[in-house]
Simulated assay, not measured.
Amino acid sequence: MNSVESTKYRKTLETAGVPPEQATAHADALGEVLESLASKAWVKAELAQQLGDLKFDMLKWMISLFIAQTSLTIGAVIAIVRYLPH
């Protein structure tokens, strides 16, 4: 919370009858909480990006393994057909 909002919040509390020391403590505490929330939003954005990267890596591996498995299956079928007695 910037200093203008903090001062306005403190004055609002004082107008409502909160002692000045307590109003200042409330304004400081709220400022710290709001700064913490901003960092949590950043963390969420970073996690979303990492999750997107992870999904891409998993998809890449799944496609590669699918191609390898299909190739092995086709090779095995060809080998069986080739070496079976006619």
Rank of each mutant, 00 (worst) to 15 (best):
W42V: 14
F56M: 03
M58E: 13
L72N: 10
I63L: 11
T12V: 06
G17Q: 06
G31Q: 04
T24K: 13
F66N: 11
I63R: 05
M58W: 08
S3N: 10
L65S: 01
A25W: 02
S39Y: 05
A48T: 14
A23V: 03
K55H: 06
A27G: 08
E5D: 08
K60P: 01
E21R: 04
T7Y: 01
G31V: 01
A41M: 06
D57N: 07
F66Y: 14
D28T: 08
R10Y: 02
A68M: 04
E32Q: 12
E21T: 04
L34Q: 14
K60N: 14
E14T: 05
K8M: 10
T15G: 03
F56V: 09
G17A: 13
D53C: 07
A25M: 10
W61Q: 12
A68W: 02
V4K: 08
K11D: 09
L51N: 00
G17Y: 07
V33S: 06
T12N: 12
K11Q: 13
R10F: 00
T24D: 10
T24Q: 14
L72M: 12
E32T: 14
W61V: 10
D57S: 09
H26P: 01
A29P: 00
A16E: 11
K8Q: 07
S39D: 11
K11A: 11
E14P: 03
D53G: 15
W42I: 15
A41F: 02
R10V: 03
S36G: 15
A68P: 00
F66R: 15
L65F: 02
V43E: 14
A25C: 01
L72H: 01
E46C: 02
I67Y: 15
T12I: 07
P19V: 09
A27S: 12
F56D: 03
A41P: 00
P20Q: 04
G17W: 07
Q50Y: 11
L34G: 09
L34F: 14
P19L: 09
I63F: 05
T24G: 07
K44A: 14
K44Q: 09
E35H: 03
Q69M: 09
A38D: 11
K60A: 14
S3A: 12
A25I: 07
D57T: 12
P20M: 06
A23N: 03
L47W: 00
M58V: 15
E21S: 11
S64I: 12
T7W: 06
S36T: 15
Q49L: 10
Q69H: 06
E35M: 09
A41H: 03
T7S: 12
G52M: 00
Q50P: 00
W61F: 07
W42Y: 04
D53I: 09
